[in-house]
């Protein structure tokens, strides 16, 4: 059974460790915050200038001066800090963020990522994505294996304009956990009831199968 979006987020959350500083992208990655393992402290960074994002506010707590990078209203936690955009990206570029988890339109077997524009369609801009993929210590992409039009997203080479080169470490999809290694894609975990063949069918480059291949546990 392929994982749901919630389950992909839950699997990604298993990568979090006590004391990690983490940046979550918009969409499915945002759900990761709901699955932080119990008993550990994980601090979420928002690139508009905040460390320590809390939950969404109640109606009474809404503060227009307090939003996340997706422009959603949020709250602070005990220990929150605020800073400027220059400080925020020094933090990101300088390698102080342990993990960035973000979505993607395409990922290549070299770890290239494309997630900011589709030429000819409307241009929105890259926001902080190029800084995050080049600066975070570890980049995890949480995405579905196949696009809505049926095309594969894990490719030999990206076709869309790149967000960053050789920067993705791991892809987590509804079918699998795949590491990007100097030898190419390494299938490390598969969803319950899914075979390596099923994953290969929706992956353009050849997958190597880890000798320690295991089933994803949520």
């Amino acid at each position: 059974m392929p994982l749901t979006r919630e389950q992909i987020a839950a699997r990604a959350a298993q990568e979090l460790r006590d004391g990690y500083y983490v940046n979550l992208g918009i969409g499915m990655p945002t759900l990761v915050a709901n699955y932080v393992p119990k008993g550990i402290d994980v601090i979420f960074q928002s690139e508009n200038g905040m460390l320590g994002i809390g939950s969404y506010p109640t109606e009474a707590e809404i503060d227009p001066d307090l939003i996340n990078a997706g422009k959603e209203t949020v709250t602070e936690i005990k220990g929150t800090s605020y800073f400027s955009s220059a400080d925020s990206f020094a933090m990101i570029r300088g390698g102080h963020i342990d993990i960035a988890i973000l979505g993607a339109m395409e990922v290549s077997e070299q770890g290239d990522i494309a997630n900011w524009t589709i030429p000819g369609k409307v241009l929105k801009g890259m926001g902080g994505a190029m800084d995050l993929v080049s600066g975070a210590k570890r980049v995890i992409v949480a995405m579905e294996q196949v696009a809505r039009d049926g095309s594969k997203k894990l490719l030999k080479e990206c076709r869309l304009p790149l967000t960053g080169k050789k920067c993705v470490n791991t892809v987590m999809s509804e079918l699998a956990v795949i590491d990007i290694t100097p030898q190419g894609l390494l299938l490390r975990e598969i969803a319950p009831g899914v075979t390596p063949d099923d994953v290969q069918k929706v992956t353009e480059p050849k997958l190597r199968i880890s000798p320690e291949l295991r089933t994803i546990k949520i």
């Binding site: 220059a86 020094a90 570029r93 290239d112 902080g128 190029m130 050789k166």
Partner: peptide
Amino acid sequence: PQGTLAERIRAGGAGLGGFFTPTGAGTQI
């Protein structure tokens, strides 16, 4: 890129002639 925008402004105010950044290397930027 957002961090490049912030740092370009910071550099402008700090009297710097620019900076080298890994952000956007190998992309159309």
